[in-house]
Design a protein around this nucleic acid. Structure first.
Lengths: 198, 198
DNA sequence: TCATTTCTGGACTCGTTCGTCCATAACGCT
DNA sequence: AGCGTTATGGACGAACGAGTCCAGAAATGA
C-alpha cells in the first residue's frame, strides 16, 4: 500500500562491495556508490542508514559468501578429501596471483583497516576465520580417516597451520610475490603435511 | 647561516608512524600529526612535502627497521641456526598475540591499503618481503648444513613457506585468533619442517 | 649589530564528503 | 479516481581536512 523499491538491495550491496573492495573503507565515497548504483543519496541513506552500516552489511555479506564458497569446495566424502584440500590450496594461490589489481581479500583488507576501531568488523572477521578453520579441520580429519594424512597430529592444529599458510599466501600476493612463488608455497605446504606411517 | 631546525626529523617520523599505524593512511589527518609532534603545519609541509611523501618516508623507514630486526634475530653460526629460526617463529606469534590493539604490522596494513594504488608502496613492500625471504633462506640453509632440517627440499621453498606462515599468523592475529592458537601454529609449522633422513 | 636566510606556527582557502531535506513520483487499497 | 504511504534524487548544509601563505622568530656570518 505504498510505493515499492525500484532497486534490488542485493545488487546495490554487490556494487558497494566492489567499491569498498578496490578503494578501502575510508577512500570510498558515498557519492561514488550512489553513482555506481544509480541510486540517489536519499534512497541509499533511506535503505541502509549510512556509510558505516552499509559497510557492515557488505562485509557481513562478503564473509558469508567466502565461507560458503570454501564450504562447497571442501564438502564431500572421505575418499576425495585430500584432493579437495589440495585443489583448494592451489586455488587460493592461483586466485591470489590472478588478482593483478592486488585487491586481496576484502575480509583481510576490511579487517586490516577497521578491526582495530570497529568491534563489529572485528567480531565478524573472527567468526569467519573460525568457520574457515572448522571447514579445514573437517576436511583434514576426513583425510586422516582415509589415510591420506598422518593421524599423529590433531586435525585442528593442521587446519590452523593450513589456514595460516592460506592467509599468508594472500598477504604475500598483495606484496607482489610472483605466481610461481605462490604456487610453490602451496605445493610445499601440501608436501610437508605429515604422511601416514603406513 | 640560517635558522636551524628545532625538531628532530627522526622523532617526527616515529610519531607519524604511530599515527599512520593505528589509523591507517586515509584516516590519519595531517593536523593530528602536527599536533602529536608539536610542529606547525608549515614546518611539517616544509620538511616533508605532503601527506603522501611523509607516508612514503615512514613506510620506507618501517620496512627497513623490520628487515633489520629480523636480520639481527637470524644472524649467527650454523650450529644455532635452528634455535634462531624457532625463536623467531615463536616471537612473531607472541608479538602478534601481544598486539592487543590489533594494529598488526604496518607493512601489511600499509600494503593492504595502498599497494593497489601506489606503486612506490607496492615496490617497497615487495622489496621488504624479498629481503625477509632471503634472510629466512640463509638461516634454513644453515640449518640444513648443520643437519637440523632435511636437505631434500630447497631452502628457498621452505623459506617461502615459513614466510607465508609468519604473515598468516599476523593476518589471523588481526582477525582475533587467540594467542594459544597462534603459538600452536608456530609449533606445528616448525614440527612439519622436514627432518634429516639420518 | 645588522643582514640574510631558513624555520615556525597558526590563520586561511578551497575542495571534498557525509548526511539531511523536501518536493515529487509511484504504487496499493478502497 | 482519490488517498495515504513510501521511494526517489538532486539540491543543500555543515564540517572537515589538505595544503598555502605570511609575518615574525631565530641563528649565523660579516
Amino acid at each position: 500500500m505504498a510505493r515499492p523499491r525500484k532497486f534490488d538491495e542485493q545488487r546495490v550491496l554487490d556494487t558497494a562491495r566492489e567499491r569498498f573492495w578496490s578503494g578501502g573503507y575510508a577512500a570510498t565515497r558515498m557519492d561514488d556508490i550512489a553513482e555506481a548504483t544509480g541510486l540517489g543519496k536519499g534512497s541509499l541513506y533511506g535503505a541502509f542508514g549510512g556509510k558505516r552500516e552499509l559497510f557492515h552489511r557488505v562485509f557481513d555479506d562478503y564473509c558469508g559468501s567466502v565461507v560458503d564458497a570454501v564450504s562447497r569446495q571442501l564438502d564431500g566424502n572421505d575418499a576425495d578429501a585430500y584432493a579437495r584440500l589440495s585443489a583448494h590450496v592451489y586455488a587460493v594461490a592461483a586466485a591470489t596471483a590472478a588478482d593483478t589489481d592486488r585487491r586481496g581479500c576484502l575480509l583481510a583488507k576490511g579487517a586490516a583497516e577497521l578491526a582495530e576501531h570497529d568491534e563489529a568488523v572485528a567480531e565478524r572477521a573472527r567468526a569467519a576465520i573460525e568457520a574457515l578453520q572448522a571447514l579445514l579441520e573437517d576436511d583434514i580429519a576426513a583425510c586422516q580417516r582415509h589415510g591420506d594424512i598422518g593421524a599423529d597430529v590433531e586435525p585442528g592444529r593442521l587446519a590452523a597451520l593450513v589456514l595460516a599458510v592460506l592467509r599468508g599466501i594472500e598477504a604475500l600476493g598483495k606484496a607482489g610475490v610472483s605466481e610461481e612463488t605462490l604456487t610453490d608455497i602451496a605445493r610445499t605446504a601440501l608436501a610437508v603435511l605429515p604422511r601416514p606411517a603406513d
